[in-house]
């Protein structure tokens, strides 16, 4: 099955092409540039390189968040439009799960991290064992302090992956001590091959695939807060 995988949920652009279990091509660029300009030319170039035409594609895999709102939307829009118009299956995979799956771990807990600013992160907890990836704690937007408390309850070492985990390394180590291990440069971002492997067994309806922002839009959050205050005032 000829499959295209796309990840634009952070500033890293990861694209992969596979034919069944064989990875044909991977492209990762880890530079802060506009995804909207770069994704389609990158897909085009990679498929060219693999002598593949759009109509040869049999499946699309995409990360649908959490991460950069705009980045996630660009990837999801391209992936679901391609899958819909080529009439082929689509798989939407957590960007955090695919980052966790990029870790060279045989057995253990892996915590993927995207920075969410102001001491907060997008994260989740996954168990890797014998090539499978299981969600232990679901993806969320959380403060580093609260998250470390939850992780300590696992009473097991946790491997932190993703280049943005470095931003919070000091705070995490202060709280978790030796239970926190950092993959550092070994796992800076999602490897297209890991995303391809994860999405292979999944399938979603293109029209139904939407980003998982793991956070309300700011205006929405403020509106809810204002309404709660109003309600409290009436009591």
């Amino acid at each position: 099955m000829k499959t295209l995988a796309i990840d634009t949920s952070t500033y890293t652009l990861s694209i992969g092409l596979a034919d069944g279990d064989v990875i044909l091509a991977e492209q990762v660029t880890n530079v802060k540039k506009n995804h909207s300009i770069r994704v389609m030319p990158a897909i085009q170039a990679l498929m060219n390189e693999a002598d593949m035409n759009p109509e040869d594609l049999e499946k699309i895999i995409v990360t649908n968040g959490p991460g950069s709102y705009t980045g996630v939307r660009i990837g999801v829009t391209i992936a679901k439009t391609l899958a819909w118009t080529l009439n082929i299956p689509l798989a939407a995979v957590s960007g955090l799960a695919s980052l966790a799956a990029s870790a060279p771990v045989v057995d253990g807990l892996v915590c993927p991290v995207f920075d969410a600013r102001r001491g907060r992160i997008f994260t989740g907890l996954y168990r890797l064992s014998n090539g499978t990836v299981q969600a232990v704690l679901e993806d969320r937007n959380v403060s580093v302090a609260d998250w470390c408390e939850e992780l300590l309850l696992q009473k097991e070492p946790v491997l932190f992956v993703g280049q943005e985990s470095n931003i919070h390394e000091k705070a995490i180590v202060e709280q978790m001590g030796k239970e926190a291990v950092f993959a550092g440069r070994a796992v800076p971002y999602t490897r297209p091959a890991a995303l391809l492997a994860l999405g292979m067994s999944m399938e979603n309806d293109p029209a139904e695939v939407v980003p998982n922002y793991a956070r309300l839009a700011e205006a929405e959050a403020k509106w809810i807060e204002a309404n709660e205050k109003k309600a409290a005032g009436r009591e």
Binding site: S36, M40, I43, P54, E55, T77, T85, L86
Partner: peptide, 11 residues
């Protein structure tokens, strides 16, 4: 823009 590009590319 990205939906249009995907369609233009696919067809």
């Amino acid at each position: 823009v990205n939906a249009a590009k995907a369609i233009a590319f696919a067809h």
